[in-house]
Computed example of a mutant assay.
Amino acid sequence: MLQTLTRFGVVFLLGLGITFAGSHTGASWLGWPVFALCAGLAFALQWLAFVPAWRLQTETFYDLTGALTYLSVIWLAVALTPGQSASSLLLAACISLWALRLGSFLFLRIRADGKDSRFDQIKPYASRFLFTWTLQGLWVVITAGCALAAITSGRMAELGLPGMLGLTLWVLGFAIEVVADSQKRRFRRTHGAERFIDSGLWARSRHPNYFGEIVLWLGIALMALPALQGWQWATLISPVFVFVLLTRVSGIPLLERKAERRWGQDPQWQAYRARTPALLPRLRA
């Protein structure tokens, strides 16, 4: 019980910290910082979605809820902040396109698979299941934090050099993620889930979709950069958070352990693992 309370406490402290930083010098609505309203909405949506998910013991709409939360908080920020520029709308559009694409992809995948095995040992316990939804709220707030801070600052003007570089990185990362997911989906349709994919982008990186994810959020941070000042600079933790989450916590480590359990004794898997980087794609095929 104490461990669970500690985990919730850490999440709330991190959420409050990034909310304080992102709200600094930003727009307000009825006396409330718009950034704070967006952060509150992010957590509220998770807790509302948890109720039917717990009653039905399902994780089917977990990822879809995450995507809809991104859309909700980003466009709430746009709606409540006066004088939005074209750069702000472009930033909001980039995140929205990413959320729509990834959210629909993950929802269709779990509908086809029937479940997400990561939740098997979590769903039966209310506190642990609630924590995963709360953690998703924090994920949204931190990951989108620099974009929310920029949009609610009201200071976004021309993209400039950092913005153009950021947009280029976002397009590159988004394209890599889309192509990698598409290649893996086609491979699974042909070969099933019992074989590992080692073709296309997956011949250059064992997790090219995660590489694309990290690159596109770095692009978002660069696009937001010119509008930030003061404590808002702390929201630039966004791409670092994505990198750490995917490479040290819930992304690559979980998938690598799962792959080792399934194919660890397979010489073809061992050869593939030896020649293919985990994340950064090798240039030569």
Score class of each variant (00 low, 15 high):
W29A: 09
T134M: 11
D120I: 12
T6E: 07
Q121M: 14
R284T: 11
C94F: 13
R273M: 01
A175R: 01
T25C: 01
L80P: 08
F119C: 05
L135S: 15
A180G: 06
T60N: 10
L16T: 12
A175F: 13
T134L: 15
S88W: 06
Q84T: 03
E256C: 08
G154P: 02
P124Q: 04
T81Y: 08
R204L: 12
P52G: 09
R204W: 08
S28C: 14
K184E: 07
L16M: 12
L48S: 10
P239V: 04
W47D: 02
H191G: 00
Q265A: 13
L254P: 00
I95D: 08
R189K: 15
L76R: 07
Q265R: 13
D198H: 12
E260R: 14
M164D: 00
A42Y: 08
E194D: 15
D181V: 08
A224W: 01
S127A: 15
R109I: 01
E213Q: 14
G9M: 03
L30D: 07
Q46P: 01
L279F: 04
C38I: 05
F243D: 03
M223S: 01
L91V: 04
F241I: 00
Q84H: 09
Y272Q: 05
Y70K: 08
R275M: 00
G212A: 03
Y125R: 10
L64F: 14
L283I: 10
L100E: 05
I74C: 10
G251F: 05
L45S: 01
A126T: 05
L91S: 05
L56A: 14
L225N: 00
L91R: 11
G22P: 08
T143K: 06
Q57K: 15
L89E: 06
G200K: 11
R189C: 07
H191V: 07
L64P: 02
A126D: 02
E213N: 12
A27N: 11
T132P: 00
A93E: 08
I237D: 05
S153I: 03
K258M: 13
E177C: 07
L165H: 09
A99K: 07
F50C: 08
L16P: 01
G31S: 13
V10C: 11
C94I: 09
I214Q: 02
L2T: 12
L148G: 03
F12R: 03
L228P: 07
R186L: 15
S117L: 14
T19C: 00
R185Y: 10
A157L: 04
L216T: 04
Q84M: 14
L90Y: 06
G137Y: 13
